[in-house]
């Protein structure tokens, strides 16, 4: 009982971090927030692993910390322009994005309520589902490469959280997903140029 309440509290913290990411204008705090989110996710996996006596979830928790908490942060920080101490997202106003994200959050909870809930006995899965939607929102509303990456990591964190609360995927697949995301971040950071914003390009219209 205590553990399930703890899971709920961790879930709420993860959800809170998702909303905080949406409100961030500066990239470095945004990266720090998503790293914190990944660490809370790892703690959740650890607790579920201990309570259900599942060693693969404990290993998964360690891997999430190493891959998402340390390595991904390292790779993203490497690409932050050194000439500017604070990289700011300029494409959207924070107030409007916060409002969008709260509206989208409510909609995603409702979608989960009427699609998954009647057939899946895992109310906390709604948090993972909302994280996926919030990640997509971040990608679509921002023009900054780092914000896109962070949106993508949020989506993947959402999937892991859903998996933890609904049914843990086979360990091999969890590991494959984690490594795949890391590889994608490494490849993607190679594409981040000095100009981290993505303007409209005439040749790529139509």
């Amino acid at each position: 009982m205590i553990y399930s309440e703890l899971e709920g509290i961790l879930g709420a913290l993860i959800l809170g971090s998702t909303l905080v990411v949406q409100t961030r204008s500066y990239i470095r705090p945004m990266i720090n927030t998503v790293v914190t989110q990944s660490v809370i996710l790892a703690v959740t996996a650890l607790i579920i692993g201990i309570t259900t006596n599942a060693p693969d979830l404990i290993v998964l928790a360690g891997l999430v910390v190493v891959l998402r908490g340390i390595l991904i942060r390292h790779f993203l920080s490497l690409r932050l322009p050194k000439t500017r101490m604070f990289v700011k997202e300029t494409s959207q106003g924070v107030a409007s994005v916060t409002m969008y994200s709260v509206i989208v959050l409510i909609i995603s909870f409702l979608v989960y309520r009427y699609t998954f809930s009647p057939i899946v006995e895992a109310p906390l899965g709604a948090i993972g589902f909302s994280m996926i939607v919030q990640g997509l929102l971040l990608i679509t509303t921002r023009r900054n490469s780092f914000a896109h990456f962070i949106g993508y990591i949020e989506e993947e964190n959402g999937i892991i959280f859903m998996s933890l609360t609904i049914v843990p995927l086979p360990f091999l697949i969890e590991i494959s997903v984690l490594l795949d995301v890391l590889a994608l971040i490494i490849v993607g950071t190679g594409l981040v140029t000095e100009n981290v914003e993505h303007p409209r390009v005439e040749e790529l219209i139509g």
Binding site: I132, G135, L136, I139, S145, H148, F149, G151, Y152, E155, E156, I159, L184, V187, G188, L191, H198, L204
Partner: peptide
Amino acid sequence: AAWRYVIIVSAGLT
């Protein structure tokens, strides 16, 4: 173009 490819496709595949 590569950026759009990697971000849109990966976000979708998730």
